[in-house]
Design a protein around this nucleic acid. Structure first.
Lengths: 136, 136
DNA sequence: CAATATAGTTAGGAAAATCTAACTATATTT
DNA sequence: AAATATAGTTAGATTTTCCTAACTATATTG
């Protein structure tokens, strides 16, 4: 019987493995790890501008600008100039860019399946209820 | 009430955030993300040789050799020539390198704490029991 | 034991990722 | 309206990451 910390460790590996598998499945072969990371952050942040993104990633604005330009060139994101402040542009995911979210969703589904498989209906319900309580 | 897939999604973000925090805490400021990734793989694989590591990372051997040399220079890993096959060397983590594992352990402990905090003793025990069953 | 295969290395080069300094355009403050 | 601040860009340079081709040393095989 493992304690919770050890369980988390196993879960963490499982999550990592499933995300890894999903990346292979979705085959974003024209993206480096780093570029995927940029897209994930843009997605998570909503529609950040360059300054926000640079701040979160702890990188300089020129660095982020260059990276963003490459991703625009590859049709993963696009810029929309702000009405509020015409100096600024917000970054949006293209349809192609949004596939990254589908990839994560796919990984999460597979993880949920894997976890559910070993439990009967009552146990499954208990687990979901407890986790809901924990994360509420 | 969230379904399990949505819960996994929230958990995945929590895990990511906690690992991120731990990285900041442990302050491996002389390592790039990539270099951290090499060390994590070396740790996970036991004591791989260059060929194994290159194969798992899907990179060429010269690429991995150069990266490994840098990490040796920074005292995160060292090489031990194999007795079985004197062409080959196994990669080991130095004490400094092993801190990476402590960093993960720290993150996992904090996650476990976070999860446990919202439950009473009985609920906590149920959760641990269910997760043990799932991951057994 | 000669031929072939394997582990690792060296060399040379290209692309990715990052920086600082200096610039333009728009906003804000005095 | 002038001075200052902010968002983004451009230019130039450095470091990191990665490759292929060719090499050395050791092991395995016909």
């Amino acid at each position: 019987m493992k304690n919770l910390t050890d369980i988390i460790s196993v879960l963490s590996n499982l999550f990592g493995q499933m995300e890894e598998d999903a990346k292979i499945q979705f085959n974003f072969s024209d993206l480096t790890h780093n570029q995927l990371n940029y897209i994930e952050h843009i997605s998570k942040l909503g529609n950040p501008n360059i300054t926000e993104l640079a701040s979160v990633l702890k990188l300089s604005k020129p660095t982020v600008k260059v990276a963003v330009d490459k991703l625009i060139g590859k049709d993963y994101i696009f810029k929309v100039q702000s009405d509020e402040d015409r100096r600024s542009s917000h970054l949006h995911l293209t349809e192609k860019g949004k596939l990254i979210n589908q990839m994560h969703d796919y990984a999460h589904k597979r993880i949920a399946e894997t976890l559910g498989r070993r439990l009967n209906q009552d146990e499954f319900n208990s687990l979901v209820e407890l986790l809901n309580k924990v994360l509420d």
